[in-house]
């Protein structure tokens, strides 16, 4: 929520504001691949799970039958698997080849730490009017939760999916009951993922009052100084203190990128919310 003074400051400073890089180009592409294949997987997976609902049948006949739906599902799955493996390779490289400090333990890490626990408590104290709003570092606790939810989800859904795809092969080392269990695991975990992404993640990162209607940083890679300072105060202050702030300065996003990002982002949100509504109606009917 912008403070009134800073709001005025933006207006007075006009277009002079600095932009800081939050996500690299590779990370943004990775997110693009992730969310487009996830939408594809959800759009093809949900009709198979709720195959008796009218929209599932309409969708299936639209793309050429449930055989085609399954083919597309596997197609997206393979792409997402490749993206996930690339991500693992990056992590491995950063951690063990480049010996990047603080990738696991530190203020910029995705790994949960004691500060996150304190932030949760502090956040709730602030909600109840019992204390000041906590200041967050590079990744707030709910952003870490988002990341690990997806990370865990991809492992579980991916593994159970491949176990179904190549069931006779997996039967060599999985017990018999697991062959039946993976179907339930796959569909329930996917349901959790769909509900999580389309309700929690959308709200956490895009629809929350700080970012409403959409947080563009994952598309443009940069955020304004005011946003940076407000949302991730600790990271901002630390960089300021260390004098590394200037290293993070990026270029202001061009108008076309902003507009393109809006179109892509809103399309994704629209598809996601549509699928969420359809899922909920199918689940409760």
């Amino acid at each position: 929520m912008p403070e009134p003074e800073t709001s005025n400051a933006i207006i007075s400073s006009g277009g002079q504001e600095k932009f800081y890089v939050r996500f690299t180009r590779a990370q943004r592409y990775m997110h693009a691949v992730l969310f487009s294949t996830f939408l594809g997987l959800a759009a093809t997976g949900l009709p198979m799970r709720f195959s008796e609902s009218f929209w599932a049948r309409k969708f299936a006949s639209g793309v050429g039958g449930f055989g085609a739906v399954l083919f597309l599902h596997k197609f997206f799955a393979v792409i997402l698997t490749i993206a996930f493996l690339i991500h693992l390779k990056d992590l491995f490289q950063r951690a063990f080849i480049n010996r990047e400090k603080g990738i696991f333990w530190g203020p910029t890490s995705m790994v949960a730490n004691w500060k996150d626990v304190k932030d949760i408590v502090g956040h709730f104290r602030w909600f109840l009017g019992m204390g000041p709003k906590p200041k967050f570092d590079r990744y707030a606790y709910w952003e870490k939760f988002d990341y690990w939810a997806v990370f865990w989800g991809m492992i579980v859904i991916g593994f159970s999916g491949y176990a179904m795809w190549f069931a006779p092969f997996f039967a060599h080392f999985l017990p018999g009951w697991a062959l039946n269990a993976v179907l339930v695991i796959h569909s329930e975990e996917a349901l959790l993922a769909v509900l999580f992404i389309f309700s929690i993640h959308f709200v956490n990162t895009h629809l929350r009052p700080d970012s409403f209607p959409m947080d563009m940083v994952i598309f443009t890679g940069v955020e304004s100084e005011e946003e940076f300072e407000h949302k991730r105060a600790l990271e901002y202050l630390r960089n300021q203190a260390q004098g590394t702030l200037e290293k993070k300065v990026g270029i202001a996003p061009p108008l076309w990128l902003l507009n393109f990002s809006k179109v892509v982002g809103f399309t994704a949100i629209f598809i996601g919310l549509t699928l969420l509504v359809l899922t909920l109606t199918a689940y409760f009917s």
């Binding site: 602030w126 709910w142 939760f145 999580f196």
Partner: peptide, 15 residues
């Protein structure tokens, strides 16, 4: 998961 996060977001939003 969904319930707690929903609650969490609702409280943030309200505050």
């Amino acid at each position: 998961v969904i319930g707690l996060m929903f609650l969490h977001n609702a409280i943030i939003w309200r505050s």
